[in-house]
Nucleic acid binder design. Structure first.
Lengths: 206, 206
DNA sequence: CTGATTTTCAAACTTTCGTTTGAAATCCAA
DNA sequence: TTGGATTTCAAACGAAAGTTTGAAAATCAG
């Protein structure tokens, strides 16, 4: 295990993550990656066994970072009231709107996968997404204590989706015909609005 | 204008729409399209001036069909109560879950554009999406008559996004760890749940 | 039917893709 | 320092991409 080779690996991973997030797997060429990473053409095949292996590694990294981010903050919300916890959850969902570059990048990679899931991604999801969904289920359960398993699951997915339309389309929302500004204070008020609607919706439903 | 050439055009458009929806622009080769359409390799360049021109045409067609579908049904909801109208809106948003193949295909093409918008798509959106958003704005205005322009717009986008998480991820939701069945009756009850939460959320907010 | 126009076709062209190759350079334990 | 292993490098390979070409076929007005 030599150290200098590790910086090459890391340079490739870093460049690849950015390009895969920006242009997707098909839209990213190996030559574009090695150019951005300032490494040799053959380095990808040497270190990762090919474009596929590199992508697999990037995907794993993004997934690890995202779940880690979610789960660490989930503990903090245990002590809050259900309304505070939900507001906090939604605010964190809106984080990518505020130039959280790394987070946004990881989400973007997932967005590509949403359109056309890779086998690798499907496996990753089915094996390791349970804790992530568990956080959302626990959250809605505090509003719907009597609901059955299926309703809880639907509510959890619904909750996760509340912000995604804003996060996913933030570029388009800025221009016509919407013209929604999304600076820091705008995102704050957006979070308040969504929290308000969601809390009232779930409260009544109980 | 000769008629036989029109069937070639149409065969190409049909095959291309399916493949672009399934695999995206980059993932679809000209050779795959002509094979599916049973036409000659050069036909795409002859009739559409290239892969780009063909994609442009497919995108326009999908957009036209979607807005048309939305606007014709919007008139029918004018006579309903605001709750009925909203329930109807949400039910229609869930349509693609129930094997509305053509609709699903058009939506899928848009989903690819959401990840990485084409210049063509951006132009299309900024010039022709206003009536579409208008329907949603009119709908939420009946719940929030006193709200300002920006709040209405946010609420409209929020409303449109209510179902997209289910529609967009329907493949993954079937498998672990979620295991959500989405047959006809399940989609019905899903629509009722979402309508319930949204109506209560907006009603309280007023 | 005739002749000009439109449309189809097989084949080849150019470029770009991911990958392979084998030698040169570098590294590190002994 | 030395010698074997690891890592880098420039170059080339074969496959697949989008496009072009020019002749053959089909079409339609007159």
């Amino acid at each position: 295990m030599t150290r200098p080779s590790e910086v090459t690996r890391q340079r490739i991973l870093n460049a690849a993550e950015r390009l895969f997030a920006e242009r997707g797997y098909d839209g990213t060429s190996v030559r574009a990656i090695v150019a951005k990473a300032h490494v040799n053409q053959a380095a990808i095949n040497y270190h990762f066994g090919g474009k596929d292996g590199l992508y697999r590694e990037v995907l794993h990294g993004a997934f690890r970072a995202l779940t880690e981010n979610q789960l660490t903050h989930a503990q903090a919300t245990q002590a809050m009231s259900r309304e505070e916890a939900l507001g906090e959850f939604i605010r964190r969902q809106l984080w990518p709107l505020m130039s959280r570059d790394e987070l946004s990048r990881h989400l973007r990679i997932f967005n590509w996968e949403t359109v056309r899931p890779t086998a690798v991604f499907r496996k990753l999801l089915s094996e390791e997404a349970a804790p992530f969904m568990g956080v959302a289920v626990d959250l809605v359960r505090r509003f719907l204590p009597e609901a059955d398993q299926r309703t809880l699951m639907v509510a959890a997915i619904w909750l996760v989706g509340q912000c995604s339309v804003f996060v996913r389309n933030r570029e388009q929302l800025g221009g016509p015909p919407v013209g929604l500004s999304l600076d820091e204070s705008a995102v704050e008020s957006l979070g308040r609005l969504i929290s308000h609607w969601v809390i009232d919706g779930l409260r009544q439903a109980a």
